[in-house]
Every structure is written in C-alpha cells, then in structure tokens.
C-alpha cells in the first residue's frame, strides 16, 4: 500500500485538523458529479477508496493501533450514497437496459448505434438522457447539454435526468476555483479613505481637508 500521508498530500507531523481538511478537500474533488458521469468514474471511485483507506490507516495509527494493516475500510463517507447512482443495477424498469450496460462498460460507439436506430418519433426522455450521457463521455458537452435539457423537458419529474443536467450546468459557469480573496481597486481605496475621514471628523480631527 502507498504511503497514506503521500495519498493525502500532508506531512507526517500534520495535525488532526489538517488531516481532516486534506481528506475533505480531496474527497470533494474525487466525488465531483461530472467525474461520476464521465468516462473516468471508475478511476475516481478507486481514488476515493484509496483515500478512505489512507485516512483510516492514519487515524488508526494515531489512535495507537497497528498501522497500515486495516485493509477493510471501516470509514464510510456520508457523501458516498449517491455516488454509485449510475453504476448500480437500479434500472430494471428501463427501456434501454442494454444501452445503459454498454455505456457503463465504456462501449459508447455500440450504445450510440442502438440509440440511433430508434426512429425519431418514438424517442423518449430516456433516449435523450442516454444520448446525452454518450456525448458527455465523448467530451461533446454542447450536444450533451442539449440532450439533457430535452430529457428534462419531456420528463420534468425524473431525478436522474435532473441530476445529470444540473451537474453539467454547474460546470457551465466560469472559474473552477471560485474562492479567491478579493482585490482592492481604486473605489475601495477612495471609500476607505472617506470612511477614515468621517471617523476622524467624529473625533474632531480631519484626514482629508475640505471633505
């Protein structure tokens, strides 16, 4: 097994708090919705398992138990519930069970051939959803977006279609890293000066004469 500290990307003397933060940050990345519905879902899942094992091993070691031997992962992540939504065998009532199986095993060209064989008149919401899945796996996000939204329009109550559409839609905004410390522009400087001036005037002084 790989060094659990390297898996988490933290030094050996990291505090428990740092350990938890590193775990959460990585778990969030591996459990990104768009990964779960992309072609690398299995890699993401394996990375997540590796992370869980590493976390378990470090926690066990810190509690004074034998290190690195806990192969059975006792730690189950709360966010893991919906993670296998696409991978399970939950589509017994599906019209396209075979297509779904093919998509999940990565044979997207075969799956698309079956879908394209269905006449336009009898294409259901599920058809559009699956077509969208194929295109998303291929990296054709525009067409995937169109097909997901068509699926949602036809069957607005379906949570599976809505989840796929939302995960793509969340990705369609700019800026992957949104948390950035705000800068300070000319307006900020002026308004800060004005505030400081007001404060000074309250106390009888003056920062900006004539203002």
């Amino acid at each position: 097994m790989a060094d659990p500290y390297a898996v988490l990307g933290i030094p050996r003397n990291a505090t428990d708090e740092q350990l938890k933060d590193a775990y959460r940050a990585l778990a969030r990345k591996y459990q990104e919705d768009s990964l779960a519905s992309g072609p690398l879902a299995d890699v993401a899942r394996r990375k997540m398992e590796e992370l869980d094992r590493a976390y378990d091993a470090i926690v066990a070691e810190r509690r004074g138990q034998t290190a690195y031997t806990s192969d059975q992962s006792s730690y189950t992540n709360a966010g893991n519930g919906g993670y296998n939504a696409y991978g399970g065998s939950a589509y017994s009532g599906s019209q396209f069970a075979d297509v779904r199986a093919q998509i999940n095993s990565g044979r997207i060209d075969d799956a698309e051939m079956i879908l394209d064989g269905i006449p336009i008149g009898s294409r259901t919401a599920e058809w559009y959803f699956l077509k969208g899945q194929i295109q998303q796996r291929r990296g054709w996000f525009d067409e995937a977006y169109k097909n997901y939204s068509a699926a949602c329009q036809r069957d607005p109550g379906n949570t599976e279609y809505a989840a796929a559409f939302n995960s793509l839609n969340n990705n369609s905004r700019g800026g992957y890293r949104q948390t950035r410390g705000g800068g300070c522009d000319a307006c900020d400087i002026c308004s800060s000066l004005l505030c400081a001036d007001c404060c000074c005037e309250c106390m009888g002084g003056d920062l900006i004469p004539g203002c």
């Binding site: 990345k29 591996y30 690398l40 996000f141 992957y176």
Partner: peptide
Amino acid sequence: MTENEAATTLA
C-alpha cells in the same frame, strides 16, 4: 464546460 472538465479531471 470544457475547461471545468479539464480542471476536474486533473484531480
């Protein structure tokens, strides 16, 4: 969508 997918996959 394209740049975010690249960034997500880098993880």
